[in-house]
């Protein structure tokens, strides 16, 4: 009996002292790593003030009714309930967004990687120029204009007139108003614009690979450029691949400018309505900020989940 008590009291003392020990340990750690914390501090403070605080406030607003003019009223889970149970347009926008993300995300990602690699195969002198050409949609102002000209709904639009000349169609197709065609057109435009941040980081990453590794690879029996890509280049590029994946996810789930510019807000029959379109609709047109914040929070959680899945897949590269 007494042995048990003794053991128990020892245990209690043990946890107490280990807690105290942890605190002391933490203080030691902070003092020991003070240089690291100083390096981090300027960024951390600005990031907290201008990113973390606004995000947390927005998440808080998602539990309120907030019309921007009056003070927010707490309404619990009501926004979320409404979102999933009675907002048919939201469910349609979720479907559209998933479809867009599932198709343009992976294809855009691989296209970025492939074109960065293809360009890297060229002689150094023309590489910078080629990178500019492929990055052009991301750097030249009002890029959607050109697609309106291309997919113009009359017989003079470039696509219509070409298809009519070739005899595929006899009447012009109303590309941007016909629910059957809006999504494919949007996907083409999104894909065309997908060589952005990820692409440039791949271009930069390819420059940093040690040339000696390629020479060693030849000794080890690497026969062609594809083997070189898989066994040497990609494993060296892992950090950039992770970066590019996050960029792909964030951009493919956040498509909104393209649909507004080409199909309008709202698009005919909500055929091209994305989650971010829905969010903009409620946040900036109907002034229901609480509801818009709930949409943003749901989208946020979805992206986090997708990111987890993709990062796990990327761990398998080069094996």
């Amino acid at each position: 009996m007494s042995a048990v008590v003794e053991k128990l009291s020892q245990h209690v003392q043990g946890t107490a002292s280990s807690f105290k020990g942890k605190l002391v340990n933490l203080k030691d750690q902070i003092v020991k790593n003070r240089v690291s914390y100083l390096f981090l501090a300027p960024f951390a403070i600005i990031f907290m003030v201008f990113t973390v605080i606004p995000v947390i406030v927005s998440m808080g607003l998602s539990f309120t009714y907030f019309n921007i003019l009056e003070t927010p009223k707490f309404i619990g889970w009501q926004n979320y309930v409404r979102l999933f149970l009675s907002d048919d347009v939201f469910l349609k926008s979720v479907k559209n967004t998933f479809l867009l993300a599932a198709i343009t995300g992976p294809i855009g990602y691989f296209a970025s990687l492939m074109f960065a690699w293809f360009i890297n195969e060229l002689p150094p002198k023309i590489r910078a120029f080629m990178v500019l050409i492929f990055y052009a949609p991301s750097i030249s102002g009002n890029v959607y204009m050109i697609w309106q000209v291309m997919f113009s709904s009359d017989a003079y639009g470039y696509v219509n007139s070409t298809l009519m000349k070739l005899g595929f169609i006899t009447e012009p197709i109303i590309w941007l108003q016909d629910p059957r065609y809006i999504m494919p057109v949007i996907m083409i435009v999104v894909l065309w614009m997908s060589l952005g941040t990820g692409f440039l980081s791949f271009v930069a990453g390819l420059q940093g690979i040690d040339r000696a590794q390629y020479e060693a690879g030849i000794v080890d029996g690497i026969k062609n450029r594809w083997q070189e890509l898989w066994y040497i280049t990609l494993p060296n590029m892992k950090p950039m691949l992770m970066f590019g994946a996050v960029m792909s996810i964030t951009s493919s789930f956040a498509v909104s400018d393209v649909t507004i510019a080409l199909a309008g807000l709202p698009s005919v029959d909500y055929a091209a309505h994305t989650v971010v379109n829905h969010l903009i609709d409620y946040g900036t047109l109907r002034f229901e900020m609480g509801y818009a914040s709930a949409i943003a929070t749901v989208l946020f959680l979805t992206m986090i989940f997708c990111n987890k899945v993709v990062q796990n897949l990327l761990k398998k590269v080069g094996r």
Binding site: N33, F47, I53, A254, V276, S293, A296, L299, N307
Partner: peptide
């Protein structure tokens, strides 16, 4: 430098990229 909190902080930074800036405009203004 691996130090306590470094991983957590980095994860927060990456995660923050996924929050839509449309709704943070008002808090940002405040």
């Amino acid at each position: 430098h691996k130090f306590p909190g470094s991983k957590l902080f980095f994860n927060i930074v990456v995660t923050s990229l996924m929050f839509s800036p449309v709704v943070t405009a008002i808090p940002n203004y405040l």
